[in-house]
Amino acid sequence: MSAEIDPTRLAGAGEKPVVLASGSRTRAEMLRAAGLPVEIRKPSVDESEFKRSLRAEGASAAEVATFLAEMKANTISRARPEALVIGADQMLDLEGSWFDKPETRDGAADHLRKLSGKRHTLISSVVVSAGGTRIWHHVATASLLVRPLSEDFISAYLDAIGDRALDSVGAYQLESVGAQLFTSVEGDFFTVLGLPLLPLLDFMRTHGALRV
């Protein structure tokens, strides 16, 4: 019988607390599973309004993702200046159209219909702030091809994942049954989940949050 894994044994000296400025269950689970203990603080940010404004100004999807990640991190960092604060954001670009997270099951189904049979790009940005200022960031992209999806499959898939469909911009969970949606995925697995994890862990090691 195998022993249970205890990822917290890989945490560093803990000179600075680490805070995740996000309400994302997936990001929190990812960080904790990787052995980085984090406190969760969800910032109050009107992402939709900023996206509209930045797009009108000609910003790229990567620029928008980084702007929003930094804004989230800085918002919490100003209240927790002693901590390393992680902010993250993900954009989905389908042939020039940007998707937001669906708010309802019907919205998730509509996302999946639009993605069906097409290739789209995910842009994931992560920012670390300290004392209210960005001190590091990284942007990664992934390209995903969705197979043609039947209405029957979309309905059964949404039944299977429930409210988790509302957790991602694409309404899918690649780490579980969402893998059935795709013909190919080009890019880092963690980027698809919404957080460029490996570069972030490298940065956290340099700041004592993880063992070297």
Rank of each mutant, 00 (worst) to 15 (best):
L20H: 05
A21S: 11
S22A: 05
S22R: 02
S22G: 07
G23L: 03
S24M: 07
S24Q: 02
S24L: 08
S24N: 04
T26S: 12
R27D: 07
R27T: 06
R27F: 08
A28H: 05
E29M: 11
E29W: 04
M30C: 07
M30P: 04
M30H: 06
L31G: 11
R32P: 06
R32C: 12
R32N: 10
A33G: 14
A33N: 12
G35S: 05
L36H: 03
L36M: 08
L36S: 07
L36C: 09
L36T: 06
L36N: 04
P37M: 05
P37K: 01
E39N: 08
E39Y: 03
E39S: 14
I40T: 13
R41F: 04
K42E: 14
K42R: 15
P43Y: 06
P43V: 15
P43F: 12
P43G: 13
S44E: 10
S44I: 13
V45G: 13
D46N: 15
D46S: 15
E47H: 09
E49M: 12
E49G: 15
E49W: 02
F50K: 07
F50M: 15
R52K: 04
R52G: 15
S53W: 06
R55I: 09
R55M: 11
A56Q: 10
A56W: 03
E57Q: 14
E57I: 09
G58F: 04
G58D: 11
A59W: 03
A59K: 06
S60L: 09
S60K: 04
A61S: 14
A61H: 04
A61I: 09
A61F: 05
A61M: 02
A61V: 13
A62H: 12
E63N: 08
V64F: 02
V64E: 09
T66V: 07
F67Y: 10
F67W: 03
F67P: 02
A69Q: 03
E70L: 01
E70C: 07
M71N: 06
A73S: 10
N74W: 00
I76T: 02
I76Y: 00
S77H: 01
A79Q: 14
A79I: 02
A79S: 12
R80L: 11
R80M: 10
P81F: 00
E82C: 05
E82G: 07
